[in-house]
């Protein structure tokens, strides 16, 4: 068994104790979102011009955005405190590195673990979306891997940075000044072309905007291959940079 799988199996062993609660939350939060914002708020919003949001119901508009945003949220919670804990508080990685495991195995294991968490959350979210009749095409299934990729694109660079942190203050700042603004302004609730030009340009630099745009195009059945490839490329570049950076910071912190 490869080293990364051993790290994954360590995390899975811990997850076995909490999986019921975790899965329950993963179901309940999209239900609450789609019920309150989609249906409730949507009944008000739908009186506006439908063409502004692509001619679909407001629920069908924000559901894919929420899918991508949920992936980002899940990724940030998995790659902040837990990573610092394993580097510094609990020294989980030190114990692993005293065995034949290597820094590459640690980063690979975290990547697999993040994929697992994102897949679980995204599949559950997708099922809820379908139950709320917000899935409009067969290509919509591709929204699941795209959501996973969006989570990786955000989470892996964060993971590289988290390995360097020694207190939780920077994480509070990350959530307040990066995650939350992205969630609110990153295209989940309204099209980012409604933002002032400068903010729109900035939004397109973030992984979330690309994740939202592509999941939305897929679930509403409006995805064009060329723009899809563009979004995937941006997300993949973020993820790749995250992995490369994590290999560096993990080594700096753990193999001094």
């Amino acid at each position: 068994m490869s080293g990364a799988l051993k790290v994954l199996s360590h995390h899975l062993r811990l997850y076995r104790r909490v999986w019921k609660g975790s899965v329950f939350v993963s179901f309940v939060s999209p239900v609450l979102y789609l019920a309150s914002i989609g249906v409730g708020l949507g009944s008000l919003v739908s009186r506006g011009p439908a063409h502004a949001i692509g001619g679909v119901s407001y629920a069908a508009f924000i559901a894919p955005g929420l899918l991508a945003a949920t992936a980002m949220m899940t990724a940030s919670s998995e790659t902040t405190f837990p990573i610092m804990a394993r580097v510094y508080w609990m020294r989980t990685y030190d114990a692993m590195l005293a065995s034949p495991l290597t820094v590459r195995d640690l980063v690979g294991g975290e990547l697999l673990w993040l994929c697992f968490r994102l897949a679980l959350v995204s599949v559950i979210f997708f099922v809820v979306m379908a139950a709320f009749h917000t899935v409009h095409s067969v290509q919509a299934l591709f929204a699941i891997p795209v959501a996973i990729l969006s989570g990786l694109a955000f989470g892996l660079p964060v993971m590289a940075w988290s390995a360097k942190q020694r207190t939780d203050t920077p994480f509070a700042l990350l959530f307040r000044f990066v995650v939350t603004p992205l969630f609110v302004l990153g295209g989940t609730f309204f099209p980012i072309d409604r933002l002032p030009r400068l903010l729109e340009d900035i939004a397109w630099l973030t992984p979330l905007a690309h994740g939202v745009a592509l999941t939305r195009a897929l679930t509403t059945g409006q995805a064009a291959l060329s723009s899809a490839l563009g979004h995937v490329t941006v997300l993949a570049i973020y993820a790749a940079i995250g992995i490369a950076a994590a290999l560096v910071t993990f080594r700096q912190e753990l193999a001094r």
Partner: peptide, 28 residues
């Protein structure tokens, strides 16, 4: 090698026997 570091690196999230058992995995 077997290593007992100065600052212990036991896994607080695992129980006593699990600490040994999971560690064995890393050594195949």
């Amino acid at each position: 090698l077997g290593v007992v570091p100065q600052a212990d690196t036991l896994d607080r999230e695992l129980r006593v026997a699990e600490n040994l058992y999971t560690y064995a995995r890393y050594f195949d």
